[in-house]
Amino acid sequence: MKESIYHPLFILLLIVLSFMLLVCLIRAVKGPRVADRLMAVNMMGTMVMVMISILALLLREGYLVDICLIYAMISFLSVVVISKVYIGIYEEQHHYQEDAEGGNADECS
């Protein structure tokens, strides 16, 4: 691999990707719904994955790609777990609000 061509190319890609990462962060902060923020964090994880792969080629360390795979797994798992827990808690609050408005006593749990 000719160093003089690949090295600046990778650095340019990294700079562009990091700029896009910061722009994603704006959506994560601004988004009015919870799903907005989760989706933005997922996108940030994807861009970080590309950055790690580029670094793995830049530094000639093949093992950084393992970290990339772990990132993919962690971002997928976090979306699934947070969605499940959030839906459960939201509907529980909703149910208790409806019960309170209807006049029934809350159960002791």
Binding site: K84, V85, I87, G88, I89, Y90, E91, E92, H95, E107, S109
Partner: peptide
């Protein structure tokens, strides 16, 4: 039953 009954 009561803690996780609303989860999908």
């Amino acid at each position: 039953v009561s803690d996780r009954r609303f989860e999908p």
